[in-house]
């Protein structure tokens, strides 16, 4: 099967800055793919390389089997939802959505009909005659989505599309985007710095750092089996265990990760456990996060609501199953 998007040793350097450095990547057709990473990690540059706004310094990019280097953005069957939406302020909503069809020379009646249909798809029917300035942030986001989808792209790129929305709206849009993607079957590539968003929406996630991909995998893989300290730390705040600690508890001199919810905290002293001091308690609603100090090593544990909580400064005993310690392949 041909990949929707394929990177082979793709680099994009700006002078001495290696924004993207020798990245290999294969995105399957129909996949919801997330590029996750802190700002400046190269994820947005990767998206712009696919859109055609950037050209690779070296390496090969293919979109559905066709080489994309040197092909301008307007000759790619790829559309983008921009972070700031980039709606055209002088056109009404319907003309904004129909723009892609207009520049392709499709007749007025036909393109406005298609634009109406697409507006209904993003649940904004009847908004066509409004100007972008009259819409709320969430509505503009939907218009931007409709404007990209009306061209029936093979790949839809989304650049932090939910970043400017408030929490409630963001959660609704996450579900809607996911449903839309499944019903259209279009490949979605989604850039975000929010690991919760990436994990909840994507079929697969690529974690970026410093122009490299640190790990590619399903959200479950990334969350449960981070390959490196960076991934463990960036995705869902796993505890990173140094080799000395791991050797003591599982026998191998290797870096490892341990999920906070895998740590059990007991208030009484127990010779089988590890003594720890409670440094801080953070109430999160469904659970409470406890910061612990184990001989100078800082660990976090999650205690579900309803279970007895220790007090700050109290000495407790922690324990965990040895199988829960995940050795990281990405660390020597």
């Amino acid at each position: 099967m041909v990949s929707a998007v394929s990177f082979q040793k793709v680099s994009r350097h700006f002078g001495s800055v290696k924004a993207v450095d020798a990245v290999d990547l294969d995105i399957e057709p129909g996949e919801f793919f997330a590029m996750l990473g802190p700002s400046g990690s190269g994820k947005t540059t990767c998206l712009r390389l696919i859109a055609g706004f950037e050209q690779p310094t070296s390496g090969a990019i293919s979109i559905f089997g066709e080489r994309a280097e040197g092909v301008p953005p307007y000759r790619r069957n790829v559309n983008t939802v921009f972070q700031d939406y980039a709606l055209f302020p002088h056109l009404n909503v319907l003309d904004n959505v129909a723009y892609g069809l207009m520049v392709k020379g499709i007749g007025r009646a036909e393109r406005l009909k298609a634009a109406e249909d697409t507006l209904a798809l993003v649940r904004l029917p009847g908004y066509g005659s409004r100007m972008p300035g009259q819409l709320s942030g969430g509505q503009r986001q939907r218009v931007a989505l409709a404007r990209a989808l009306v061209n029936r792209p093979k790949v839809l790129l989304l650049d932090e599309p939910l970043g400017a929305l408030d929490l409630k709206l963001r959660e609704n849009m996450q579900e809607e985007l996911k449903l839309l993607q499944k019903s259209l079957g279009v490949t979605f590539i989604f850039v975000t710095h929010d690991q919760g968003e990436a994990l909840s929406m994507a079929d697969r996630v690529a974690v970026f750092n410093d122009g490299h991909i640190m790990q590619i995998g399903t959200p479950h893989d990334i969350y449960q089996r981070p390959a490196s300290r960076f991934v463990a730390d960036f995705v869902g705040s796993s505890n990173v265990l140094p080799p000395e600690f791991v050797k003591l508890h599982s026998g191998q001199m290797r870096w490892a990760s341990l999920r906070p919810e895998a740590i059990r905290v007991k208030r009484e002293q127990d010779a089988n456990g590890i003594p720890a001091d409670v440094v801080a308690l953070n109430y999160l609603g469904a659970s409470t996060r406890i910061a612990l100090d184990v001989n100078g090593l800082r660990l976090h544990a999650m205690i579900p609501a309803g279970q007895p909580l220790p007090e700050q400064g109290e000495r407790v005993t922690i324990s965990f199953n040895r199988e829960q310690i995940h050795l990281m392949d990405g660390e020597a």
Partner: peptide, 15 residues
């Protein structure tokens, strides 16, 4: 005028 507006136009197929 936001610069991404021009990119959006290219992206939508306009030369």
């Amino acid at each position: 005028t936001s610069g991404s507006m021009i990119e959006a136009s290219y992206d939508l197929g306009a030369d």
